[in-house]
Amino acid sequence: MIRSSVSNCPVPTDQQPLNEYEELKSSWLFRDATLDWRKYITKLAWIWGLSWLIAGPIAAASFPPHKYIAHFMLCGGAGASVGLVLILVRLYLGWFYVCDRLCSPTVFYEESGWYDGQTWTKPQEVLNRDRLIVSYEIKPILRRLQFTFAGLAGMYVTGTIVWHLF
């Protein structure tokens, strides 16, 4: 973990925005959003494929594959995408939370429990450092996730159009 450069920072180490960022960046789920595009898409494809284990039987119960293969595939694909969307929402919310904490000129923290919340105003040097991290590290991740959501929305629209053609 990176320690704040300000020695008089009263915020507990695990609640400092920079340390929250480092922890998020190294956690098993959230680091997937930082991978290069090919590995990122591969991970998403694996999640979507594993979601078929749940969506496939449900789609097969509604649209037997031997009779309605197109409807089965579209329904199963859309159902499997639900698992993918849930993972992506979790990724987006986690990265957005850290982004918000780093961008904010003040840091809300708790010393020992929910009842003793305090606020610390960041010195300008810390605020500048944190905002640089947001600009160069976190904003691209958030844009990637937004682009992924847009791609999924496009696939849903395309699937809906194809559904009505059959």
Rank of each mutant, 00 (worst) to 15 (best):
S104H: 10
W114Q: 07
G154C: 07
T119N: 02
T119F: 00
R90F: 07
V85Y: 05
Q118P: 01
E111K: 12
V89Y: 04
T121L: 08
Y115T: 13
S104D: 15
L88M: 09
F147S: 11
I133S: 06
G154H: 06
T121Y: 02
Y156A: 15
P140T: 14
L132T: 12
L145Y: 03
V89S: 01
L132A: 12
E110K: 11
L86R: 01
F147Q: 08
Q146P: 00
D130L: 01
G94H: 03
G113P: 01
G113T: 04
F96Q: 15
N128S: 12
C103E: 15
S112E: 08
T160E: 03
Y92W: 13
G83Q: 05
L88T: 01
I138W: 03
C103S: 15
V82R: 01
D116N: 14
G151N: 12
R90P: 00
V134L: 05
V157K: 00
I87C: 11
C99G: 02
V85F: 10
D116Y: 00
F147E: 06
D130V: 05
I138Q: 04
V134N: 03
D100H: 11
F147V: 10
T148D: 05
E137F: 00
Y156V: 15
R144H: 04
I133T: 14
E110R: 15
S104T: 07
I87N: 09
L152T: 03
Q124T: 11
R129Y: 06
Y115S: 13
Q146R: 13
G113H: 13
G159Y: 03
V157Q: 00
L84M: 08
P123F: 03
I138C: 07
R129E: 15
L152Q: 08
G117C: 00
M155Q: 12
F149C: 07
L84C: 02
Q146L: 12
L86A: 14
V89Q: 04
F96W: 12
L142C: 10
E137S: 05
V126W: 00
A150Y: 04
V85H: 01
R90D: 14
L86F: 10
F147T: 14
L127P: 11
K122C: 03
T119K: 05
T106Q: 14
T148M: 02
L142F: 09
F96S: 15
T106M: 08
L127G: 10
Q124H: 07
G117Y: 00
F96G: 04
T148V: 03
Q118A: 09
S135M: 09
Y92N: 08
W95V: 07
E125Y: 11
W114I: 10
T119Q: 09
I161S: 00
Y156S: 10
G94K: 11
V107F: 03
S135Q: 14
Y97M: 06
V85M: 12
A153N: 08
P105A: 11
M155H: 06
L88K: 00
C99Y: 10
Y97S: 11
V134A: 03
G94M: 01
V85P: 00
W120S: 05
K122A: 09
F108L: 12
L152N: 04
F149N: 06
I141N: 03
